[in-house]
Design a protein around this nucleic acid. Structure first.
Lengths: 411, 411
DNA sequence: TAATTAGTTTGTTGCGGCAACATATTATTC
DNA sequence: GAATAATATGTTGCCGCAACAAACTAATTA
């Protein structure tokens, strides 16, 4: 951790450059005068900072503002063509890769099913193959590629780029950073899925001006991205955010968690818990269209299928989501009490059923948290839903660029 | 919230002044040369910064270092006589006030029993009376008094100095800041007990160089002080840290929490839960010396009395602490998974039984948390035990002084 | 006396702030 | 329709102040 504690003039310049760049990023189109007003910086200082950003091609002028008295303002925005970014999400049963411009607009994407249980090396090679396609696509566009972001469920050492432990993948100590850097010759960023999703939401999503929020990434497990005081909180070793393993022991479903313990919150509120709930309901022979759907589609009992049943009005599906939503809300309530956040954002694969989960989450939060605190917290769905972690992989590269680019020379 | 995001030269000076002052505070005695080495600042810069601190009487020279080659170093330390600080802790059933010097050394203290249930105004007046005694004592010492810190269990708006809600006191919207400022003419700082205790531990206690830790304040309830990235985390409105109200619903003790809900973690691990556990054990007529002790001392069933019984080897007392320790550890485990802290510090009234609780907390943490994370977390007792919040009241004044004093003119 | 370490002096570089100014437009008046 | 006023944007040149660098003095030991 390169934690310089002292300040000097270079630090001042970097701070202000980064601040102005981020402001232009999130508020574009915006004029120099508006930047000066919003930051409190002097007009002349803003001009100097913007000049530098223009020279580095990070920002460009997009023509005059019309209307209003006085000299028309020259509007600025971040240059989407500042470079491409590649993001890859390594899920438990799939791999997703995307190429975007600097503003996070998707230019290319590909998703493949995968099976992590079979072979770690095979899955890494599969990912590498798709990433190489993505790089080829980026080259065609004749743009520099700024980096490769890689997200995965589990605790990550981001400095070394090593996956420490992913309970749901049963993987330990995988040096993703080294592997992908050698094979792609790109700067590689490795990050936990929920952390990355939180950054995505802050840069491109529903948490743009929000300084304190939690991203709850729900899928096979439940992970948390803690965005506190305007930045990601990673804890002592970067493992912070394992919110799914808070021991709550609430209901009779005493499922053993992938982490090895019993009573973890996520076992009551993850994908599998919903499937369990549906199974239990089907066993007592209630009328449900789910068996019919499974037969028709030759499919197992999956979340998309249950969602489909719920959309068709199937009571067992809807009630199962509701139950899981209440269990989810119990954890949300606890987290809201702990963090006093402005927003709680639900994303990840399970969020495709957000419309069935959210009302129950909100209800449980009302019941289980301190009203003074929960009244302050807005509970919403991720802008990117099941793609939250993929866009997150992009976001961690862009976010780093927004602070580091400043050090680059002229293009 | 005066959140200036931009940086300028004044900011640089403040940052470095504060850094040097804090370094001298925590590492004294220390020379200018050592400060330069540790901070990376230029020798001449350090000299200039130290000169300013000397001129403001915040630091003083305490003579030459002896031994070693070269010119002997002039050692520096923070001037304990820079001013007095008054701290007041408003507990659920007591009031404690102390006067310390700038280094937190206690010069005077007084504690009175109180009963918040009877009359809020009466209790505030009682506190005010003792605080005025403290001020008089401070004046005798012929020192300026830097401020009054006030801690209380509950959520606090620190900017307004208002207690928003204290479940265990049944108080709402008490403008402590205004009341005490008018009556004492001192700068008044109001803070939640656990938050303040965390600051105390960081400035004066076992977390001096620790950037990421949680203070768990256990007494009538359980509060948390979240010290993250080297500073207190307060959340959106300053209510963060209500860790006691995480809904866990673990055991048959379905006690209604003071917050109005059921299943809050603190109901399984607070003072009253231990008393309940002892009562339940005594009812089934086990042999215990507790009834005898109660009769002898004409006392109710209190934590100090149960502790006394445990010290005498009483199995029921020891086992009750052990049970509560395990319940406490369950929450610790969840918090460790969420925060990946370097330390977990247990303090507050209940920590007088720390020796009986801690081993069980550690055992439960091992069982319920992810080993990669919990191996990183040291679980320790507060340096100040039951006084953690009182010293915390001092610490919030000193901490503010360490950053604000820099703005003062020459004395 | 030489070596070593502590701290000071003098001058340099580079930052943002300030105030005056040039520029470009709309609004108002005749 | 032309002249003038008002308004807002952005630039220029100068200043104070920050840390830094290098050369210095100071005080000690070997």
């Amino acid at each position: 951790m390169n934690t310089k504690l002292t300040a000097d003039q270079a630090f001042v310049r970097e701070t202000n450059l980064s601040l102005v760049l981020r402001l232009i990023h999130s508020q574009a189109p915006i004029s120099r005068a508006q930047v000066a007003l919003m930051t409190g910086l002097n007009k002349s200082t803003v001009s100097s900072l913007v000049d530098e950003l223009l020279a580095k091609n990070l920002v460009h002028e997009i023509g005059n503002n019309i209307g209003g008295a006085g000299r028309p303002a020259m509007m600025l925005e971040v240059n989407a063509q500042a470079g491409n970014v590649i993001g890859a999400e390594l899920g438990v049963d799939f791999v997703s890769v995307a190429v975007t411009d600097f503003m996070g607009n998707i230019l290319w994407r590909k998703r493949e099913e995968a099976d992590t249980n079979v072979n770690q090396v095979k899955m890494i090679n599969q990912t590498l193959q798709i990433v190489k396609e993505a790089i080829k696509f980026g080259k065609k566009k004749n743009q520099r590629t700024l980096g490769l972001g890689l997200t995965t469920p589990g605790t990550v050492n981001i400095n070394e780029g090593v996956l420490i432990f992913a309970p749901n993948l049963h993987w330990r100590n995988v040096p993703f950073g080294k592997i992908f850097a050698e094979q792609t010759k790109l700067p590689v960023y490795v990050e936990n899925d929920a952390n990355a999703a939180a950054v995505a939401e802050h840069l491109f999503g529903t948490a743009r001006q929000v300084q304190d929020f939690l991203f709850v990434f729900s899928g096979v497990g439940i992970g948390g991205g803690l965005f506190l005081n305007g930045k990601l909180y990673r804890g002592k070793n970067g493992y912070a955010g394992e919110i799914g393993h808070f021991p709550i022991m609430a209901e009779p479903y005493q499922t053993v968690c992938h982490c090895g313990n019993r009573g973890c919150w996520e076992t009551y509120a993850n994908q599998y818990s919903i499937i369990q709930r549906v199974q239990a309901r089907l066993e007592v022979k209630r009328s449900s269209i789910i068996p019919k759907l499974m037969a028709e589609q030759n499919s197992g009992l999956t979340i998309p299928l249950i969602k489909q049943a719920a959309d068709a009005g199937d009571k067992e599906a809807i009630d199962s989501f509701a139950e899981a939503g209440l269990a989810m809300g119990q954890g949300f309530a606890g987290l809201i009490n702990i963090f006093n956040p402005k927003k709680m954002i639900l994303g990840g694969p399970l969020s495709i059923a957000g419309e069935y989960l959210l009302p129950n989450i909100i209800q449980a939060v009302k019941r289980h948290s301190m009203p003074e605190i929960s009244q302050q917290a807005e509970i919403v769905l991720s802008k990117f839903g099941p793609d939250a972690s993929l866009i997150g992989a992009i976001a961690i590269v862009v976010d780093d660029a927004l602070t580091r680019f400043i050090h680059f020379g002229k293009k």
